[in-house]
C-alpha cells in the first residue's frame, strides 16, 4: 500500500473492513472522512478512509420514530425517505444535498434545529463502527432510551473520525411540524453577548424556537424582515440551507469564526409548531438577537485523552 496520502472508499462494509485490516497490517495512520464537505481533515494521516459509498436506509420504524441508515447516505436522501412517514431527523442543516450523515454526525455541525433539539449527534441511539484493527462493533441500542454500558457513540463521534469509522447509525426521529413559520431578520450581531437577552424573553413568552440560525451568506432577503408559513417555510428553510452550503463547504476556519470575522448581517429564525397571531411577530422579531452561546462553536480543542483512547481501542 502506498505511503502517499490517499482516500480509500468501498461500496460494502466488508471491503472497508479489508482495507482497514491492510492499513493496520501496514502500520499506516488513518482518519475517517465522509465527502469532506463539512470539515477539513485537521490531522495528517497516511490514509483517509471513507464510508461515503454506503448509502442504504436499512429500516424506518414510523411507530417508534427510529431508523437505521448507512453513514454514506446524504441528509437529503434521508429527508426524502422520511417524508412519506411525516418524520424528520432533528436536523435541517446546510448542504443537505451533499455530504453524508456520517460526516454530519461526526462534524458536530449545528443545524437549524439545534437550539431546540440539540446537535444531530444527540439524535444517535446506536451505531456500528469499524475500529482501527478491522473489528466491527456496535454501540447503543435501537430503543429511544438505554443506559446499558458506556455511551461509546458520543465519544467516538466527537473524535471526528480519529478513533473509528462510523458505518451505520440508528437515529431518533421526530414528527414533521404541522405548523411552522420562517423568519429572516436583519440584525447587528456585533452587539455584546450581554445584550442577547431577547431570546429568553421570547421563550418565557411561551414560544419555542425550533431553530435559530445565523448566516453571513448573501441571501436575497437579508435587508428586511420576512416571514413564511407552513410548507413554504419548510421549503425555504431547506433552500436557504442549500444556498449556504458553499459558505460551509469552503475550506477554512469553523463557521462561528467565519461569522464573527465577516460581521454578520442577518439571522434566520425557523419557528415550528406555533399558533401565535401573525401580527405579534414582527414587533418581537425586531428585538431579537442571538441567544447566548447557541451558535458559537468554540475553537477546536486538542484532547490529551485522544491518543490514550486510540491506543486502548487497539490494545483491547
Amino acid at each position: 500500500m502506498s505511503k502517499e496520502p490517499c482516500l480509500l472508499t468501498a461500496p460494502a462494509q466488508l471491503d472497508l473492513q479489508q482495507q482497514m485490516l491492510q492499513i493496520h497490517a501496514d502500520g499506516l495512520s488513518w482518519r475517517a472522512v465522509g465527502t469532506q464537505t463539512r470539515m477539513q481533515p485537521q490531522t495528517a494521516a497516511d490514509v483517509f478512509l471513507s464510508a461515503a459509498a454506503l448509502k442504504q436506509i436499512h429500516w424506518i420504524d414510523a411507530e417508534d420514530r427510529t431508523c437505521e441508515v448507512d453513514a454514506g447516505l446524504s441528509p437529503a436522501a434521508l429527508h426524502a425517505g422520511l417524508d412519506e412517514y411525516g418524520l424528520m431527523l432533528s436536523h435541517s442543516g446546510c448542504s443537505d444535498d451533499v455530504g453524508t450523515i456520517g460526516g454530519l454526525l461526526n462534524s458536530g455541525t449545528p443545524s437549524l434545529l439545534a437550539g431546540s433539539c440539540g446537535l444531530p449527534r444527540d439524535q444517535v441511539l446506536g451505531a456500528t463502527w469499524l475500529l482501527g484493527d478491522g473489528r466491527v462493533i456496535r454501540s447503543g441500542a435501537r430503543v429511544v432510551k438505554s443506559v446499558a454500558g458506556y455511551d461509546v457513540s458520543r465519544l467516538l463521534l466527537s473524535a471526528q473520525g480519529q478513533l473509528a469509522v462510523g458505518l451505520r447509525f440508528i437515529l431518533r426521529l421526530r414528527p414533521r411540524p404541522s405548523n411552522l413559520r420562517w423568519y429572516q431578520l436583519p440584525t447587528d450581531l456585533q452587539r455584546p453577548p450581554s445584550s442577547w437577552r431577547p431570546w429568553a424573553d421570547f421563550q418565557q413568552d411561551g414560544r419555542r424556537f425550533a431553530a435559530w440560525e445565523s448566516c453571513d451568506s448573501p441571501l436575497p432577503q437579508a435587508q428586511s424582515i420576512s416571514s413564511h408559513e407552513g410548507d413554504t417555510a419548510w421549503k425555504l428553510a431547506r433552500k436557504q440551507c442549500q444556498l449556504a452550503k458553499h459558505w460551509l463547504a469552503t475550506p477554512g476556519p469553523w463557521p462561528a469564526e467565519k461569522m464573527h470575522a465577516a460581521g454578520l448581517s442577518m439571522q434566520q429564525c425557523l419557528i415550528l409548531d406555533h399558533l401565535a397571531h401573525q401580527s405579534a411577530w414582527p414587533q418581537l422579531a425586531e428585538d431579537v438577537a442571538l441567544p447566548a452561546g447557541s451558535a458559537v462553536l468554540p475553537h477546536r480543542q486538542a484532547s490529551p485523552w485522544l491518543d490514550a483512547m486510540r491506543q486502548a481501542l487497539l490494545r483491547s
Partner: peptide
C-alpha cells in the same frame, strides 16, 4: 464540556454521564 450548546471537543462529558 462548556455551558454553550455546541462543543467541538472530545466528548468526555458524554462518556461520563451514565458511567
Amino acid at each position: 464540556g462548556t455551558p454553550t450548546t455546541f462543543s467541538d471537543a472530545l466528548d468526555l462529558r458524554g462518556f461520563l454521564l451514565g458511567s
